[in-house]
Design a protein around this nucleic acid. Sequence first.
DNA 1: TATATATGTGAGTAATCACTTGCAAATATA
DNA 2: TATATTTGCAAGTGATTACTCACATATATA
Lengths: 181, 181
Amino acid sequence: MQVITHIYMTDKKEKILKSALELFANEGVNATSTSKIAKIAGVSEGLIFRHFNNKKGLLNSIIESAEEKANDLFADILKQKDAKSVIKKTIDLPFLIKKSEYDYWKLQFKLKWEEEYNNPKKMQPLIEKLTWAFLELNYEKPSLEAQHLIQTFESISTEILKGNFSNQNEFKQFLKHKYSV
Amino acid sequence: MQVITHIYMTDKKEKILKSALELFANEGVNATSTSKIAKIAGVSEGLIFRHFNNKKGLLNSIIESAEEKANDLFADILKQKDAKSVIKKTIDLPFLIKKSEYDYWKLQFKLKWEEEYNNPKKMQPLIEKLTWAFLELNYEKPSLEAQHLIQTFESISTEILKGNFSNQNEFKQFLKHKYSV
DNA sequence: TATATATGTGAGTAATCACTTGCAAATATA
DNA sequence: TATATTTGCAAGTGATTACTCACATATATA
């Protein structure tokens, strides 16, 4: 057994989650069979269903922890008291994603194309915080500026996760200069 | 038989392509079985393989015509002689996508997450044209500006295709004002 | 008209799918 | 220690998968 935050989880259950995440993120949920997950995880296929009931239950379990990771990242921005810090940290956000967490984000971005899992409201707190920041800084259209910066954030994240973003630092500086932060 | 541009295509072949496009775009390639395509198209399953050899051949055939549609849209921008027109038309681009062609674009955007079908070079001509335009207008960092506008274009397209973009016109005006076009 | 080719069907195929079941071993609790 | 519960596996299940094949009909060409 191993301690995850404060919940105990068996090693094999963890291995299933880890293998499923990797396969779901890189090959797609539908293209990943439960037998393949079991094989990669080194467990019997039946164990997947013992722990997660069905394939969807496994996916939901992964999505849950992925959303936790997303909220952790947003939390830091939401608690900022300084308008410029909010914008600065939003620009930094996509460049801070750890390689070890790429699969979590890949899966989330991919699933946004599945109606069932696309929830644009998840960005709402960040949009509101940015709107406040742009208002504070006397931008003409604060909410549209917020919308635009979120779009930029999503595009940058997408490019990074797909592995085609060569001039990351240069572009980050460019953006910070644009917003004077 | 029916005439498509200058190539003859049987009605049933067309129906297969149409049904497959709809299903691939909305439910995903892996989640769409050839039997379901045949059922929706009102043909025998075997006919799919007669015309396209295998499922991948069918997908490739759809992708080909999707890329043609994309190139048609880009072509108009690439031939512009005026820098401001280039930027203006790029901003207009995502808002010009016809509802009847949503499925083509949905499929293209979804497939960008599959390594095999992700080809960032496809945007290169547009990036270069925009870089030229921003240089012409004396922007400090033309190529980064181009990269940024393309990102905005991709984000807007994505939001429109996912159906969560309520303030389209307002946002379009906002962008045009930002770039003074 | 005769014949070759293209278009179409329906009934197959083996492989794989998500999932179940019966039973054993490990662990927690009394 | 005795017993209940959890964790685990191997061998299944029927349904569905992408794809093939034999055969028929429609169309193009000689």
